[in-house]
C-alpha cells in the first residue's frame, strides 16, 4: 500500500493524517509535506498515525526532521498512535522520550505542555 496524506486545521494546530506504509520509498513524500507546512508557517503539527500500517527508521528520521524544523520556530510536533506494533518502534529507538504521543487527535490538539 502506498502512503496517503491529508491535512486539516484545528484551531492553531495542523493535523496531518497519514495512512499506509512509511518506508524508504514513501518517506520523502511525508518529508515534503512537513517541510511545506513549516515553510507556510504551520509550526504546531499533530501527526495522526492511526491508519499507518508500517513504519521504519526512514519514517522515524522524517518525523525527527519535522520536529527539528518546528522547534526552530518554537513549535511542536505531536503524534497520535494507539497501535502497539508502531509504538514499539518508538520505544526501541528511545523516541518516546522525544515525541509527545497521544491516544486521540482531540487530546493532541488540546495539549499545551
Amino acid at each position: 500500500m502506498d502512503l496517503s496524506l491529508s491535512t486539516r486545521t484545528v484551531g492553531d494546530r495542523t493535523v496531518v493524517e497519514v495512512g499506509g506504509e512509511i518506508d524508504v520509498y514513501t518517506a520523502p513524500k511525508l518529508r515534503e509535506q512537513l517541510v511545506e507546512l513549516v515553510n507556510d508557517g504551520s509550526y504546531h503539527l499533530v501527526v495522526d498515525m492511526e491508519r499507518v500500517d508500517f513504519l521504519d527508521s526512514t519514517g522515524l528520521g522524517v518525523l525527527v526532521g519535522g520536529l527539528k524544523r518546528v522547534r526552530a520556530h518554537e513549535g511542536s510536533l505531536r503524534l497520535v498512535c494507539n497501535q502497539e506494533r508502531i509504538l514499539k518502534i518508538f520505544r526501541i529507538t528511545g523516541l518516546t522520550k522525544v515525541f509527545p504521543i497521544h491516544t486521540t487527535v482531540e487530546d493532541a490538539v488540546s495539549a499545551t505542555d
Binding site: D56, S57, T58, L60, G61, V64, G65, I89, I92, T93
Partner: peptide, 11 residues
C-alpha cells in the same frame, strides 16, 4: 546529522 542509517541499525 541525518542519522537514518544509524537508526536503522538501532531498530
Amino acid at each position: 546529522i541525518e542519522g537514518e542509517d544509524e537508526m536503522g541499525l538501532a531498530v
